[in-house]
Amino acid sequence: MIDAKEREIVEALQGGLPLVPAPYRQVADNLGLEEDDLLFRLADMKSRGVIRRIAAAANHYKLGMTSNGMTVWDVEDTRVADLGPQIGLLAFVTHCYERPRALPDWPYNLFAMVHGSDPIEVEEKRAEIAAILGDACRAQDILYSTRILKKTGLRLKQKG
């Protein structure tokens, strides 16, 4: 959970961190905080996992990675914890999660988002994943995104 001051910090930083030499001081000034106080609070929010990291989100399309496929795998439950990190380590995989199956519609429990410059490259990378999973994988599929239907960031409801 976050307190009222932290909520103000989240709202102030939702749009991003300023690209100036002392960005935290600028944000602190806007919030009426001392820079050290803000840095302390941010460190605390990181230690609690509220902030995962302070980093750039890259646009794969602009980097020529115009083809992306959500590869999905039915991996033996007892081997997911061991194999998942190996898939997450691959440079072309941006997101990798274990998720519950939804039988009978959906037998897959490992999801790995793969990016490539075209579908051929994505298929090659999918084969690399298949090779790592080996006989622990019983079934697989790939879902290409054909259209972005909606895209908004995390939005906190305005309170009081």
Partner: peptide, 10 residues
């Protein structure tokens, strides 16, 4: 090329 730079909140 960078869509956003800043904290990733959970």
């Amino acid at each position: 090329v960078i869509t956003r730079f800043g904290p990733f909140f959970d």
